[in-house]
């Protein structure tokens, strides 16, 4: 299988300064991440808020130039790509469809926008946009509406239609369901799974919702404070998590049993701060299993970045 996305040593560092004389903060949102996504695979990227997963999505889309390293998509350096070629290869679905659709454009125009940028003639644009709308389960008369007249689920369908109208090979979904009603989330996920099969898509699904990722992904990468701390085949990571953070994440999933109450988390109250990443293993202040070595020495790079986990010989 060929490689669809190859991120090598990618970092995103932001220099923040509040006012001219304010305190200078160096926020490391993504820290030297290397990741490959094979063609046709659905990769789930999981992590808490602030772990850098959305920044990573922006790096994969080329919306953000990496501070270090590079992202190659379909064998080409993303930052050096022609915008039209890039649009044919990789497309986004964003979290909040209320913000990802231009409120001053009609749905038909929104879906046809990538075609217009690609230079497709007006008649064909209209035809393909309408076809795409029906593929995502929207009636043709929706084309004349404005996003403000649509429900959240319908808006996300429009966003998906726009992303797929150029028939790209890769779809980056940044929390595609978290702004939606619970009842609509499953519909959108099923739609994505169905379209993934019929368009032969490589999918990157970014979410903090483990159930969403488990539903869709073949492989998962668990992010913590800008690094991927565990990665592997989805079934085995969910069945037998190895990194203490992954274990804690999986333990934190709410069960539908009302009698069980909220899950106990062994992580403590310290909120991770990407402007102040701990020395040694970045997870050690919250790790229930930390040993002395964790505070001083960063764990070796690998599929599971933890001192307590023996690397699997390959």
């Amino acid at each position: 299988m060929s490689v669809a996305i190859e991120a090598s040593g990618v970092s995103a560092v932001f220099d923040q300064r509040v006012g001219t004389f304010g305190v200078h903060r160096r926020v490391v949102a993504v820290d030297d991440v290397s990741l490959t996504v094979k063609e046709g695979i659905a990769l789930g990227i999981v992590g808490e808020s602030g772990c850098g997963k959305s920044t990573f999505a922006r790096l994969l889309l080329g919306l953000l130039a990496p501070s270090g390293g590079d992202v190659r998509v379909g064998g080409h350096e993303l930052q050096a790509m022609d915008r039209r070629a890039r649009a044919r290869l990789i497309q986004p679905v964003f979290q909040d469809p209320a913000s990802s659709l231009n409120p001053r454009r009609r749905v038909g125009e929104i879906v046809a926008l990538p075609l217009r940028a690609a230079g497709v003639a007006r008649g064909e644009r209209r035809e393909r946009a309408l076809l795409m709308l029906s593929r995502v389960g929207l009636a043709p008369e929706m084309a004349g509406r404005y996003p403000g007249q649509l429900s959240g689920g319908q808006r996300q369908r429009v966003a998906i239609a726009r992303a797929l109208v150029l028939e790209p090979r890769i779809l980056i979904c940044d929390e595609p369901t978290s702004a939606l009603d619970v009842s609509v989330q499953a519909q959108i996920l099923n739609l994505l799974a169905e379209l993934r099969a019929s368009f032969n898509l490589t999918l990157v699904m970014i979410s903090h919702n483990l159930a969403v990722v488990e539903h869709v992904a073949d492989e998962v990468a668990i992010m913590y404070l800008g690094r991927v701390v565990e990665r592997g085949e989805a079934g085995s990571v969910f069945a037998a998590p190895r990194h203490p953070y992954t274990k804690a994440l999986l333990a934190s999933v709410l069960t539908p049993e009302p009698g069980l109450g909220l899950p106990e988390l062994p992580l403590g109250d310290a909120v991770p701060d990407p402007a102040n990443i701990p020395a040694g293993c970045r997870f050690h202040p919250r790790c229930p299993a930390a040993i002395a070595r964790c505070a001083t020495e960063a764990p070796a790079r690998g599929d599971v970045e933890c001192h307590l986990v023996q690397p699997v010989p390959t």
Binding site: L61, L63, R83, R86, A87, P92, P114
Partner: peptide
């Protein structure tokens, strides 16, 4: 900073058409 501007960029729109259209 709205996502529809990011989406237009990802759609392959030029800077000029993003400014004029979005």
């Amino acid at each position: 900073s709205r996502d529809y501007v990011a989406a237009a960029w990802c759609a392959g729109c030029s800077r000029r058409s993003i400014v004029l259209g979005e």
